[in-house]
Design a protein around this nucleic acid. Structure first.
Length: 650
RNA sequence: GCCGACAUAGCUCAGCUGGUAGAGCAACUGAUUCGUAAUCAGUAGGUCCCCAGUUCAAUUCUGGGUGUCGGCUCCA
């Protein structure tokens, strides 16, 4: 074996080094001091490793510098280690569990009697940054499982012992330990070179979290934090948070007169007039879109006998999420549960299935598409409610499509196009996820083959990029989910297209084919907005309350320069209203500047100024939200402008 | 539901260690009649989330509830 190894760099160039040279030394000596300084971790043949690892074979080497987001992920994991070491120093007796990097930061779960207070958090944050300043190297060490077990047993780390045993049970022979200072944890790594390279740590919150995410397990104390390589980046992050806070639909909604909540109805919104307008605009747009695509809009009962839920399977698995209703005609002596013979519907699908099954269906009718915007109730756990994104009462732009298997490709292709139209109109970019058969599933492989091929074929036909999620489909069929990205880069899962082979079985749905025999249809569940509530929350934050003209609850506000011009202003408002535009008139005795400011704060798309000039010209001077002055124009020209710019995009 | 924090005027917030509350904006009234992000003056507005308890006295301390927020679990 040669004492020299060949290292291939990402640009294809090759360099040689003595076997056993540490990556860090190689980079500094053979590539450059600058890169060595910026390096955080490295990849050897694609595998992430510490810079202290030796080059023991011919390898491809990539240096991961602090400019690479991957390095930040590692640094945050480093930060979690350092924080855990500080916590154990400050609060002896606290046990450590796990502490990974997450999007935007890290957390670490601790086992201890008393929760951390905000003051504790400050103390820990200060201690963590001080520990970072000590600049202790991260040292990697491989030990046998037995040694590891003995180590953590000696340290009294019960949770760690449990994890080590699990890892051993999965057949691992050795465990890697990482030390900094006198603190030790086991960890796959990699870690950065030393604590000093982590940068700045900011702790954000404490929260309870179940051990291994299971409510049956003890509750641990989780500390969330984040870190950045520089103070500047930390400040930028804080600014972004502030920006998101300003857009929070829970603040903007009430401020813009869209919706509000009352303690007597947790999880159910009061829709104020402007919010109701928005709600209807979205609903009507979806009605047009579905009608154009061959859907039938139907409404089904809100309250159903439990027999429906027994048929659908919800009574068994979903009952605790349903609002049960006592039937007053049942025997009062019966236990409450037996008197609850009805439930508010938590979803529309079962009632659509009933509708389908009420008549004999022919293959000539398929696909049959039912669209419903009814009110749904789900009894969500109180602690999970949040603004409009998580409510107990909501409406979906729900639809179920009953079709023959041979029609799936064409139908999904149409659906993907509809989704594209809606999200493009909102300026939401999106990506698709395609989830295939899970391990526990219904139906035979041939059916799954056809179903997956149909979904995939439709995605390919539309040319939509998608990520495959193997095994993540529902047990009753594969699905496509759509993630949208809003204007400040946050992702939300919205639309879904699910193939369902189970429901037609449970409800015994059939159609008569051209062979005069009975066949099973397939059901597609689809929603594009998801729920109106959540979609409006997302849109409010995405647009920061400044809705596009076609959605704006008030499209124009007519403001007078003084009350001498009230008559013409009223005529202008009346004319715009007659054209179907949503208009307000501000003829208070405020100064023009104040009226404009008020209209801006309400995020109204057009402020229409009416004064001396306009009265003479029988015109208006519109000003766009944001400040652009369109100068004086004839009233009819403005009507035309609104008509053109305010057209509904779908 | 579980863990933690919070709850004062419509909104944003003040109110040392217990002595029944204040500001700015909004609202209302009057004056002002004004040209593209705040005219001036005045008035009114509070069961300090609710229910118990401790105390001579509770917005303040204790307990219980409700709601909200951040997480866990769950999810449109």
């Amino acid at each position: 074996m040669s004492d020299i190894v060949t290292v291939t760099l990402p640009d294809g160039s090759q360099k040689e080094a003595p076997r056993g040279t540490r990556v860090a030394d190689f980079v500094r000596e053979k590539i450059g001091a600058g890169l060595a300084k910026a390096a955080y971790v490295a990849r050897l043949d694609g595998e992430p490793v510490d810079l202290s690892r030796p080059l023991d074979r011919d390898v491809r080497l990539e240096v991961v510098t602090t400019r690479n987001p991957e390095a930040l992920t590692v640094a945050r994991h480093d930060a979690a280690h350092v924080m855990a070491s500080v916590v154990q120093k400050l609060y002896p007796g606290t046990q450590v569990t796990i502490g990974p990097s997450i999007e935007d930061g890290f957390y670490y779960d601790f086992a201890r009697e008393n929760p951390f207070t905000p003051e504790d958090l400050e103390r820990i944050e200060k201690g963590t940054n001080e520990a970072i300043a000590l600049d202790q190297p991260f040292l990697r060490e491989e030990v046998s499982m037995a040694e590891a077990l003995a180590l953590f047993e000696r340290l009294g780390e019960g949770y760690k012992v449990e994890i080590v045993k699990d890892i051993a049970a999965r057949g691992a022979k050795t465990l890697t330990l990482y030390r900094h200072g006198d603190w030790v944890d086991f960890c796959l790594g990699p870690h950065g070179p030393s604590t000093g390279r982590i940068g700045v740590v900011k702790l954000t919150s404490v929260a309870g979290a179940y051990w291994r995410g299971d409510p049956k397990n003890p509750m641990l104390q989780r500390i969330y934090g984040t870190s950045f390589f520089s103070k500047k980046e930390l400040d930028e992050w804080a600014t972004r948070l502030e920006e998101a806070r300003k857009r929070d639909h829970r603040k903007l909604g009430p401020a813009l007169g869209l919706f509000t909540f009352h303690p007597y109805a947790p999880g159910a919104a009061f829709w104020l007039d402007k919010g109701t307008t928005l709600y209807h605009l979205l609903g009507d747009a979806m009605r047009r879109l579905t009608r154009k695509n061959g859907y039938l809009e139907v409404k089904t009962p809100l309250l159903f006998n439990k027999k429906l839920w027994e048929t659908s399977g919800h009574w068994g698995k979903y009952r605790e999420n349903m609002f049960l209703v006592v039937d007053s005609e049942t025997d009062e002596k019966l236990p409450l549960e037996d008197r609850c013979t009805q439930s508010l519907k938590p979803m529309n699908c079962p009632s659509h299935h009933l509708l389908y099954a009420m008549q004999k269906r022919s293959y000539r009718e398929l696909p049959i598409r039912y669209h419903t915007q009814d009110v749904l109730h789900r009894n969500e756990a109180s602690g999970t409610l949040s603004g409009l994104t998580r409510v107990r009462q909501f409406q979906q732009d729900d639809a179920h499509i009953y079709l023959a298997e041979s029609q799936i490709v064409e139908e999904v292709r149409s659906l993907v196009r509809q989704i594209d139209v809606v999200y493009k109109a909102m300026g939401l970019s999106y990506t698709a996820k395609f989830s295939t058969r899970p391990e526990v599933k219904l139906g035979d492989d041939a059916t799954w083959d056809r179903a997956e091929a149909a979904l995939k074929g439709a995605l390919d036909a539309v040319g939509l990029p998608y990520e495959v999620k193997p095994g993540e489909g529902a047990f009753y069929g594969p699905k496509i989910d759509f993630d949208v990205t809003d204007s400040i880069g946050r992702k939300w899962q919205l639309a879904t297209i699910q193939l369902d082979y189970l429901a037609p079985e449970r409800f015994d749905l059939t159609y008569v084919g051209d062979d005069n025999a009975e066949h099973r249809p397939v059901v597609i569940h689809r929603a594009i907005y998801g729920s109106f509530e959540r979609f409006l929350a997302i849109l409010t934050e995405h647009f920061a309350g400044a809705f596009p003209l076609w959605l704006a609850p008030v499209q124009a506000r007519v403001v007078t320069v003084s009350d001498r011009f009230n008559d013409w202003a009223a005529e202008v408002a009346a004319r715009l209203e007659a054209e179907g535009f949503r208009v307000e008139l501000d003829h208070t005795s405020e100064k023009l500047g104040a009226k404009i400011r008020d209209a801006q704060l309400q995020k109204i798309p057009f402020t229409v100024v009416v004064g001396e000039k306009e009265v003479e010209a029988r015109g208006v001077s519109p000003r766009r939200r944001g400040g652009e002055d369109l100068k004086t124009m004839p009233l009819e020209a403005f009507v035309e402008l609104l008509r053109k710019e305010g057209a509904t995009p779908y």
